[in-house]
Amino acid sequence: MPSEEEIFEKVREALVDALGVDDDEVTATATLQGDLDAESIDFLDIVFRLEKAFDIKIERGELFPEDILTNADYVQDGKVNEAGIVKLRERMPFADLTKFEAEPVVQNLGQQLTVKDMVNFVAYKLAA
């Protein structure tokens, strides 16, 4: 299993190639959508590159569980409810959801996903 630094370097390379950003923009705390301007289609590109770089398989909804965010059982008035938060914690053990839980507006989840979350996601996949 590669070290966290090795994972970070490969994740950085994938993000530089997929998003056309500079190396130094890809910091652990940078958010994918907010700081690195990733759009929804970019996530396909990122997943494609991560699968190749780490020889892993990432299923739809695994990195970003859009099925929860579009499920009326878990979302009311544009906000994720308690049950939805529990479900998100289960599905996204790799992500720090603290900030999201304070203001669980659906759109915020994608906005707050960081490079560090991606590194944790890969480590979680490699350990599985």
Partner: peptide, 10 residues
């Protein structure tokens, strides 16, 4: 086709 998944392909 380099890669195909339920929601897209490369």
């Amino acid at each position: 086709i380099e890669w195909v998944r339920g929601d897209g392909a490369a």
